[in-house]
Design a binder for these strands. Structure first.
Lengths: 326, 326
DNA sequence: ATGAAAGCGCTAACAA
DNA sequence: TTGTTAGCGCTTTCAT
């Protein structure tokens, strides 16, 4: 494999000149042409490891999420990657499975890679303990954040979104409303807070249950809840993964929405409008979340000293049949 | 940030010894302990760019797919990543959008990264033109391959799977069967071949249409097809993305399966069993595909000279209501 | 088992 | 605009 010296020799110039061509440095047009011809002839590929070592910048960012198969993260990842490559940066993707040990391991790996920065959807335990100074690179958190986080962040207005769903249910005449939330992320906690507040303001009880963030856990929990005499008239479910579990539970219990139980949730996944008259959900602006996170990271690199910034995006209430009593 | 020299000084040894600790080389237990203590104290993180440059191996593989949001690739990616990290390798993910220019660009990037190997789901144009020698690393193709590919590969038995779906429809009494296929991948071509052969063997016509691999293109094509007087009794759709489009079309045309039109397809996505009595599909062994691709890459690295190998996996027919006349 | 020395392929400072 | 020189942080001979 050709190296910079070979190209230099073939073009009759010094290695530095070849390097300048590579980096768009000052080179006369005539020489540049010659060098580019030599590169093409030798099928030269600059060695990125060498460039990174020497130049001390990797143009690489880390993207740490719980599971790329969660459609929310799938969509956000794609947006982040597009924006990254558009800015000449590469992305290293890491799946943590909501496991703090894996989170720590991948953060360590990011340090070894000397990444330029990281976009991170942390678990609840991790949020407060992230120290950018110690890490050595800036972090933008997404999806799961709390007030005590010390980094930039892009989040949905989770309380408001949950409150909106509750408001919608109240408006439709539901009074007996239950909530199902994930127990590992701050997102679940915030959505629970919005849910509780909205119901308390209406003078109603706010029965809530918390489960592991998996389809199976949600399915089992909902199946059990629906079998109890205190079964709620309406169910609010905290994200797309849990929502799928809830749908499976309702289906396998032989029940139907909205007559047996109304159902509302988060994440406007592709299947939510295909079921019966559709599921009422809050849609997250997934592309905007990804793009914004990447943009904030780039801004932070430009201005390391500027104060912490949290961008709060609004969800969009999409009303469908699952919450409209007939 | 501490470097190897600092650790060496702190531990009272030479940099080589620290390096040996890092690489599990021969070091006495006593010295190893001292070095590890120094590493911990200084919060040392080895610089991967430097290691890669010097050692000439990157322990990195590239994964090139059309779009991570396609659930098939989402699942395969996750399996590849898990298997990679388990083997101490990192993964660079690239989305090509079925665009040959992007494919070429990312292959070039993989060369600059000096990746150990690449797992690649190529478009039709690209399949035959992949030259591992010129690229400088081994390639394992997935999902889309043809006989003239010159690399290792892991594929579904697409012809047989399509034929199975046709066989199932014939058994259920359908005679007038149409097929919808993607026009950019060899996968679509092979599934079309299996579809055609099976119908020809039964002495039946095999009307087929080809569309761009997007939900919208499929929806429009099916909408139009269903409005024609020659509308088929049953529709076979070549992958999960197109299948979603077909479902939308049938729904928005106010039709129902199986009475108005039976529907079968590929990819057992989460929503396929939620719609009515469910969609009949061929399920691909997504985890096995990802794991096998990674395993083949590792084997190829061990034995560069062994002959080309293609692993053909079987799909699983999952029969549901969409193809069972009432 | 350990150390000294060389160099992976490139870029950045400096000089011309 | 171009060349010369040094060195990024590590691993790998080759000694000892």
């Amino acid at each position: 494999m050709a190296k910079i010296k070979d190209v230099a020799a073939a073009a009759g110039v010094s290695p530095s000149t070849v390097s300048r061509v590579l980096c768009n440095g000052p080179v006369s047009d005539k020489v540049r042409k010659r060098v580019e011809a030599a590169m093409a002839k030798l099928d030269y590929r600059p060695n990125l490891a060498a460039r990174r070592l020497r130049s001390q910048h990797t143009d690489t960012i880390g993207l740490i999420v719980s599971d790329i198969r969660n459609p929310f993260f799938t969509a956000v990842s794609r947006a982040v990657e597009d924006e990254a490559y558009r800015n000449g940066m590469r992305v290293i993707l890491c799946n943590t499975d909501e496991n703090p040990d894996k989170e720590a391991m991948y953060l360590r790996l990011m340090q070894e890679e000397r990444v330029t920065g990281v976009i991170f959807a942390p678990t609840r335990q991790m949020v407060a303990s992230i120290d950018q100074q110690a890490l050595g690179f800036p972090v933008v958190m997404i999806d799961r954040v709390s007030a005590d986080a010390a980094t930039d962040a892009v989040v949905l207005d989770n309380r408001r979104a949950a409150a909106q769903l509750v408001g919608h249910l109240l408006q439709q005449g539901y009074r007996d409303i239950g909530g199902l939330f994930g127990n590992t992320s701050n997102t679940g906690m915030e959505r629970h807070a919005g849910f509780s507040e909205a119901l308390q303001q209406a003078g109603l009880a706010a029965p809530a249950r918390f489960v592991a963030p998996s389809v199976e856990a949600a399915e089992q929990a909902v199946l059990q809840w629906l079998a109890e005499p205190t079964r709620p008239q309406a169910l609010l479910v905290s994200n797309g993964v849990l929502l799928l579990g809830a749908v499976r539970a309702i289906k396998s219990a032989g029940l139907h929405w909205p007559q047996d139980v109304a159902l509302v949730g988060f994440d406007n996944e592709v299947w939510t409008d295909l079921l019966g008259d559709g599921l009422t959900v809050v849609e997250q602006p997934v592309n905007e979340i990804g793009r914004t996170a990447m943009a904030m990271l780039l801004e932070r690199l430009d201005e390391p000293e500027r104060s912490q910034r949290i961008v709060v995006l609004q969800g969009k209430l999409v009303v469908r049949g699952s919450s409209l009593p007939q």
